[in-house]
Amino acid sequence: MSSNEHDKAAGLSTGAVARRLGVAPTTVRTWDQRYGLGPDAHTPGKHRRWTAADIARLERMSALTMAGVPPAEAARAAREGRSSATALAADAPTRPGPARSRAGTGLRLGNARRECKGLARASLRLDAASVDDLLTAAIDDYGLVTAWQEVIMPTLQAVGRKWEASGEKYVEVEHFLSWHITGALRRGAPRIPADQAAATTLLACVPGEVHTLPLEALAAALIDQGLPVRMFGAAMPAEALVDAVRRTGPAIIGLWAQSRTTANRPLAQHVAAIEWGVRGARRHPLVLTLGPGWAGQTVPGLPRPSGLAEALAVVEAAVGDGVRRPVGR
């Protein structure tokens, strides 16, 4: 028997099932203890292992509670294999107002990692504890860059598509998820050692740009690689940006623009031309134009990395080359 077949035969642990469903492990245990949705083949004194049939029941339970069915009724429906619509109809006499199917509240994630689906379910439920647990687990399991590219971003994009297609009905889900991602990124990055406090990289959104999450991901990834960062966040005024560059003399500057309406080519060129140092050996920064807003706004001589991994690689390579370039080179 292959290891894959053995895993299927043995079943999944409670923690693995919780990640798959997008709930906290305590939720799975509660559904087991309170509503009898535990593994069919559980042996007393041994760790619980969940088979495909056990997990299918829990998935029905999760879908029904997310659709507004009270937990006790959802559990009965899950045990009996009833659908969401049937459970909603059965529950209608005890609930005020007409019963409405909410089967369309799921997010379209295609062939994304299963962690995306769990995170999406938890986000739709506005389940803060589960979202935090799932984000932390993804970063711990895959590393910050892979977690961002293969778990966090696909889920964020699915949420964005959902509210755009629903008349902004799910804006609260995007705000909720974004706030928790910010916290997870900061928790996932180590503290900058005191002897590395002189940051080599300055990151800021261009004036008028308020979308900071991708820049926060880059900041966390750089810190994770031992590369100190000064992060200035959203909508950095042009004068303040120039002052910060002159005061700190960063080796690398990342300017984020989500929209073409905020991408500011003259500002990027001006910042790239700022010089400091002693006469005859003046230096200037390497400026990276980051984000989709710079598409079609290519600034000659300034790199435009296409994503987090590429931006991280450009910074690491520049640091390895000494970064601060003499003027005129």
Rank of each mutant, 00 (worst) to 15 (best):
25 P>K: 12
123 S>I: 08
90 A>G: 01
29 R>C: 08
271 V>W: 05
72 A>W: 00
173 V>I: 14
235 A>H: 13
281 A>H: 11
118 G>Y: 04
65 T>Q: 02
142 Y>Q: 00
3 S>F: 10
83 S>T: 15
109 L>I: 05
89 A>F: 10
195 D>Q: 09
109 L>C: 03
163 W>M: 05
320 G>A: 13
38 G>K: 08
13 S>W: 03
215 L>I: 04
90 A>P: 01
259 S>H: 05
247 R>F: 07
267 L>K: 11
30 T>A: 15
136 T>V: 09
181 I>G: 10
277 G>I: 10
146 T>S: 04
165 A>D: 11
309 A>I: 01
152 I>F: 13
285 P>M: 06
188 G>D: 01
50 W>Y: 15
22 G>N: 08
298 T>D: 10
310 E>F: 01
5 E>S: 07
125 R>Q: 13
28 V>G: 05
318 A>M: 14
318 A>W: 05
288 L>M: 02
207 P>V: 06
320 G>Y: 06
120 A>M: 01
140 D>M: 00
300 P>C: 04
230 R>K: 12
328 G>T: 09
70 P>N: 08
15 G>W: 13
224 D>T: 12
53 A>K: 10
113 R>M: 13
206 V>S: 02
254 G>L: 02
302 L>V: 00
87 A>W: 02
279 R>T: 04
32 D>S: 15
